[in-house]
Nucleic acid binder design. Structure first.
Ligand code: FES
Ligand code: FES
Lengths: 151, 151
DNA sequence: TTTAGATTAAACCTATAGGAATAATATGCT
DNA sequence: AGCATATTATTCCTATAGGTTTAATCTAAA
């Protein structure tokens, strides 16, 4: 399951993407409008800043801004950082690879091959979906059947 | 000034580097021996794990481990992530570059050239110093005069 | 002896508090 | 008018609480 941290990060980012031409956005605004716990969100935004996904201005009139265009911020990146590896088993993870000691025949393990497929299609979707995509999806009225159009 | 987060991260990492052949190390052990606030350290270690600098094992007998050899973990990386850009002015930052609007003649700005030199030598030292280096330094009896030997 | 469940030890997750640093703006003094 | 000082709004930093999940080990029943 996606952690709250990851979900809140994504929500805040989509919000910032939508408001990207309106100057710095307050933590308080994001928290209130998206119903996110303010202090927790504060930590998350700070981490996003350290990742160079956001930048900030301090002091009066300050707030948070995207550090790059929405089209350059991939869901996959955010999920990996805030939620951990996409892979369901370590042996198919690209970012946190490890052999499964309990699987003797690593090379022919069926679980591994299926899970690798799962990871790969997940990565393809998540790395192919940017904040721009998410904003576009939310702006449209259609349901999941036509998502392919966006991705 | 180096933030506590950065300092604690480095201290914990050096401790883990020294203990690297002793299996998983407990948060509690690190906190106690290095006199670091336990719950705060917990957050920092988790972040180091998300950065793939550490790995962990959960449950009984668990703890934290380096995710790669000490020689591959650079001080510069840790400092940048936990403390921010090395540059003292944004216009010389590699990771967070921004033009200084208040300096009209960016190209010929003297402050900038000096600060660039400062950033470059800082980066050279910090990126050239790994956990392995730090452990070696602490194992030696000499003072800063002979640090060049290590770096 | 195997298996199922209980206990325990550990990291992990969500959340919050309180104050420091920073920057804009307003205010008051010369 | 110009400068110093105070106020205010904001992010940033350090720290902590409390509960959840995971995994190893122990215990008891089948
Ligand atoms: S080798 Fe990883 S699931 Fe079998
Ligand atoms: S241009 Fe950055 S200090 Fe002058």
């Amino acid at each position: 399951m996606l952690s709250m941290r990851a979900k809140y990060a994504l929500k805040a980012l989509v919000y910032l993407a939508k408001a990207k031409d309106q100057g710095p956005v307050l933590i308080g605004d994001i928290a209130e409008s998206q119903k996110l716990p303010r202090k927790f969100l504060e930590q998350i935004l700070l981490e996003l800043k350290n990742l160079r996904v956001l930048k900030s201005r301090q002091g009066k009139g300050g707030g948070y801004l995207l550090a790059k265009p929405p089209a350059e911020i991939e869901m996959g990146h955010i999920v990996r950082v805030f939620n951990g590896p996409l892979a369901l088993v370590p042996c198919v993870s690209v970012t946190a690879f490890e052999k499964c000691e309990e699987c003797l025949d690593f090379a022919h393990c069926g679980i591994r091959r299926v899970m690798k497929k799962v990871r790969d299609v997940t990565a393809e979707i998540l790395d192919g979906t940017t904040l721009e995509t998410l904003v576009a999806i939310e702006a449209s009225e259609s349901d999941e059947a036509s998502l392919m159009y966006f991705i």
